[in-house]
Amino acid sequence: MDDTRDQLLQEWLDRAPDSPPPATTSDEQADLLAYQTLFSQLETPPTVGLPYGFARRVRQQLEQRAHRRSDVRFYLFCVGLFVVSVLGGYSLLVLVDAELARQTKLVVIQHSGALLAGIVLFLGIQLTNSQWVQQQVNAWGR
């Protein structure tokens, strides 16, 4: 390999030349031809591509993520609202009838497991439902 000659030829081809090629001998001309062929092959686009509908698929994936995020925000809002309502109701009850409030608190504490199960069930149904709807939407989209 002649580094200097190769360098000259590569630089000449990179410049998209107007000047005469730096190749006079038959060896140099053979190298120039080899480089010209190589450059043209390197610039040939690949035969493989991305599947048809790739852009739509990426878009759907992003939309799904956005829906999931808004669903999570909604569920957190629901849980927050529930907690605030319970605390608000309890505070009102304390103002109106302290004894009744105390008894209610005891009942709620006694049945806290059932209350928690109710919240989890509500969120579970919502989540399953949204996933099922998303699957249906995807199936129609295909």
């Binding site: 190769d6 360098q7 590569q10 190298d31 080899a34 450059f39 390197l42």
Partner: peptide, 13 residues
């Protein structure tokens, strides 16, 4: 870039 193209040219030749 120079070395990669030089290696490829030699190999293809």
């Amino acid at each position: 870039l120079f070395r990669a193209r030089q290696l490829l040219k030699t190999k293809l030749s």
